[in-house]
Design a binder for these strands. Structure first.
Lengths: 198, 198
DNA sequence: GCTTCCGCTTAACCCGGGTTAAGGGGAACC
DNA sequence: GGTTCCCCTTAACCCGGGTTAAGCGGAAGC
């Protein structure tokens, strides 16, 4: 990929400003990234895939979900602009993953292979440090999600979701939000009615 | 702490065999650990504490839980022999944590301060690598717990728990298991009766 | 323009877990 | 040895979400 900070300002800022890569390092990093378009409903990953790289979500949104034996889908989280998507466990173990990552809108990804990233991280210490910080942050987020799922009921989690993402009802369908809350679409519809009547 | 492999064989094996520290490295590491006894019901950590180190659980078991505003306790996980206990987020951010870690039996811990560990890890690359692997493993475990909580109901999670820890009913009280399953003690009692009648 | 499909809503009934309350048995304490 | 406390059990009633089913409206396809 070639440098063009106008098209992906957040991506540039992340590595240049926040993590302080110098111009040469950033150019080398950028050269290893590939632009990849993912049309709505297409899959970035499905269960059984081995994750071969990391992907930065520059535009669009995705849902990451698992499927239980009965066929029911459970959304672990949604991802939006400026997030990284992928199956963390599969990336590190090189084993087939259990997660599906599907585009909910037309998406633009910046993709880098595991091999290229590993090589670059070995050469650029700041990149290594960034990767570790990112890993920790997603650990915090996952632990907080676990607490949330354990301590809140469906209604509290719904109110929490729309508080954090006020525009989510405009971007994500009722059935996907229901799969995130682990309730049936009918129950979410009923809940919305109940809330609007207050 | 002084070397005495008879008293903590798993600890010794972990660092000597599994992570391949040589004798000198292991002795240096061991010298930074402190033996600490935690009687039943005592706290290793409470919410608001800043975690100042890592602790290896050599003997006993603990519960790690969070408390919601209403006062209800939710057990995130139990820890047994050969596990590490602590608040991951607080350890890395140096901010007050949200978790309680309480001994459910008389416990023996091997404790090392964050400063000592950081210094040793900088000097011993294998230790650094070990810490990263451990961080990833707990990430996998947390993600799997999140999937579990989202996809399984209370009965499935109970059956899953006793499958993984067949002796858990002998070590951990009904009310703590109920707090792990996020149901009331009465409901677990009722569930056990229902299961035994099949 | 008609049909088909899909996403959303509404409703009736069921069931699992919460809530409240009461009681029993064992360990600790006096 | 009796009281107290704690942990567990049981039961009755309530409520939220699941299940099943029906209907509606807009978008896509013919």
């Amino acid at each position: 990929m070639e440098a063009s900070s106008d098209i992906f300002p957040r991506f540039t800022e992340l590595f240049r400003t926040t993590f302080g890569l110098d111009e040469a390092e950033y150019t080398r990093l950028l050269a290893c990234f590939h632009r990849r378009l993912l049309p709505k409903k297409a899959y970035y990953l499905t269960a059984g895939d081995v994750t071969r790289g990391k992907a930065y979500l520059n535009k669009g949104c995705t849902r990451t979900y698992v499927v239980e034996e009965s066929g029911k889908e459970h959304v672990l989280f949604f991802s939006f602009e400026d997030w990284w998507v992928g199956d963390f466990q599969s990336y590190h173990t090189l084993q087939p993953g259990t997660q599906y990552v599907q585009a909910l809108e037309d998406c633009e990804l910046f993709w880098i292979s595991r091999d290229d990233f590993t090589r670059l991280a070995a050469e650029i210490p700041k990149l290594q440090a960034w990767d570790q910080v990112k890993g920790r942050k997603s650990m915090f987020a996952t632990l907080n999600r676990l607490s949330e799922v354990k301590t809140m009921n469906a209604e509290e989690r719904y109110l929490n979701l729309i508080e954090k993402h006020p525009a989510i009802n405009q971007r994500i369908s009722l059935q996907d939000i229901a799969a995130f809350l682990d309730i049936e679409p009918q129950s979410l519809s009923r809940m919305r009615k109940r809330l609007s009547e207050r």
